[in-house]
Structure formats: structure tokens, C-alpha cells
Simulated assay, not measured.
Amino acid sequence: MAHIDYYFGTPSPWSYLAGDRLERIAEKHGATVTYKPVDLLQLFDRTGGVRPANRHPSRLEYRAQELRRWSETLDMRLNLKPAFWPVNPAPSSYAIIAAQAAGGGDLPGLVQRFLRAVWADEENIAEDAVIRAKLSASGFDPALADKGLFIGAETFGRNLEQAVEAGVFGAPFYVVRETGERFWGQDRLDFLDRHLAGL
């Protein structure tokens, strides 16, 4: 059985546009997934990337065009200038980490709710009330927003180190543990599907 380490950032529009395709691919091939939220700005700093605020205008303009094209192609509502972006990824990431450790709820749904909150629903995922509401809607104890702070902070930092060690430099990023094959971007999910099928 294959295992996929999924590296992503809760403020990432490209992670949002991945939707539930990873989960459908994993189910199709009997693969398991570990969700590893990371601080993308620190990841860029560590791996030679450029933070969005420091990118050349031509790159930012092209990014906006690509986001529009992909959101239309995937029929996913996306606000190119969300009300709460950039946003501190730590609180929502801690909640995901705590929920994954606790189990019993809809973890993929929680991840997607946070992503959709930023890019479609104009919600601040750094706010305690929003975090608790997403946990509750996903079948988790909303108190994990507080209970998970220690494990969240510890694991969030470790995820960054593991990402760098695994050759991750952006999001969404998928690493198949057994083979070491890496796939960067929601537009590479078809390649992940083919790899898991042995093609």
C-alpha cells in the first residue's frame, strides 16, 4: 500500500484548487495520506523560492491569470484578492495537526474548509472562532483549537524540516514515501494517479 505525504499551506490558492482530487486518487489506489501543513514563506526562504510580496510584477500578473484560468476550468469559486490574505497559517495548521492526531473526524474536509475559507468565503483562518467552527463542521472537538497548541507548534516546525529534507519547495506537494517520487502542483495530480497505477 502506498503512502503519500501531502505538504501544503493553508493560505495557498493552489492547494485550494486541488480540491478533493488527492483523496479520490488515494482511495482509488488504496493509498494512505499524511497531511503536513507547512509555513510556505519559510519554505521559500529555505529552498530558493521568492515570497509573493517580493516577486516581480510580471510574475504576479501571470499568477493571477493562471489562478483565474484554473478556477474557471475546475469550476471552483476563487477571489483573486481575498479579504484575509496574506494570513498567519499557524493557528489553522495547528488545528489540522491536532485533528489528525485526535482522529475521528473528516480531516480532508477540514483541510478543504480552511482553504475555501480564504479563497472563496472571505473568512480569517487565524481567528479562533473560525477555527473552532471549521473543526466542529468537520466532526472534531472545537476545543482542539486550544488543546492542540503544543503538538501543533512542535509538529508544524518539524513538518518544515521534513519538507526541506524531502525536496519539497512549494505547495501543494505530494511525496510517495515508498518510491520517493515527488509531484509539485495541483496540475500534477494526474501524474500522481498514473504513478500509483504503475504506469
Rank of each mutant, 00 (worst) to 15 (best):
Y7M: 05
R68V: 00
R177Y: 10
N124D: 15
L199G: 14
N159T: 01
R21D: 12
L41M: 13
R188D: 08
I151R: 10
F150D: 15
A126S: 14
A102L: 10
L110K: 09
P37A: 11
R63K: 12
F173W: 15
E165P: 04
V175K: 13
E72I: 01
P52G: 07
W70V: 05
A95T: 08
P86Y: 06
L40I: 14
L78Y: 00
A99N: 13
P57L: 08
S15K: 02
R59C: 02
A133T: 03
I97K: 06
R55E: 05
F169M: 04
L17C: 04
A137R: 11
Q186G: 06
A117T: 08
D187T: 01
L160N: 07
R194G: 08
L60R: 15
S58F: 13
G148A: 02
L196D: 02
Y62P: 09
A171E: 09
F169I: 01
L199P: 01
A129F: 05
Y174P: 10
R188E: 12
P82L: 07
A126E: 07
R63T: 01
A171N: 07
S93H: 11
I97V: 12
A197S: 14
R194C: 03
A163D: 07
G170C: 01
W85S: 14
W85F: 15
Q100Y: 03
A153I: 01
